[in-house]
Amino acid sequence: MIEPQLPLDLGHRPALGGADFLISSCNAEAAAWLDRWPHWPGPALVLHGPDGCGKTHLASIFAQRSGARMLDPAQLGAVDPFRLFETAAAAVVEDADLGVDEVGLFHLYNAAKECGAHLLLTGRLAPGLWQIALPDLRSRLLAAHSVRIRPPDDRMMEALLVKLFADRQLKVGQDVVAYLATRMERSFAAARALVAHVDSAALAAHRAVTVPFLRELLDREEDERQARLPWC
């Protein structure tokens, strides 16, 4: 029997330690490259994958291990990169595909190369699809080694659900995980959204997260969805 959740929204802090990271075939290559640091094939490494696939998690594990500085993509112009690499062996720029300061990133890349430091960049899409106007930067990004985090496989999906529930102090049974995994959209973002949704629905209903509870919840919502979309 699972203890009912306290009906208080205390928020939750996702575990971002190395031990919490799930490795599966979809992200093994990315993890292997980060483990290999500083033996990278160039000054920069790009991790790309869909929302919620663990880029931030991997990046923060990397930052802890390497002492890398996390930089704001929009504020790179304010950084003197040569100063930065006097004290840090690496820097991380997350979401480098969204409104990054291009000239700032270009200088940062060059400084990293010159100082023998490294740059970890993350984004949703492969660098070839980033909207980069500066040709010098574009060509450096295209030449950098980039690793894709793939959509979750079955093993990853199940492990991810367990972890996401655990982040919310919810212990769920294997039957719950199997039930959800075979019925949900198979993406990282969907898993995150679904677990948040299930958590709040269970809190509101004062129910434990069990298969019967989920069946009721999802069937009802499916019916509502069908009713809203009469042409389906």
Binding site: E29, W33, R36, P41, S139, R140, L142, A143, H145, S146
Partner: peptide, 20 residues
């Protein structure tokens, strides 16, 4: 496009082969 990207592509192919 250019030599940097060409060499980058070659490096990636080689690095990947060595990794796996």
């Amino acid at each position: 496009s250019n030599v940097r990207e060409l060499e980058g592509a070659l490096n990636r192919v080689i690095a990947h082969a060595q990794l796996v």
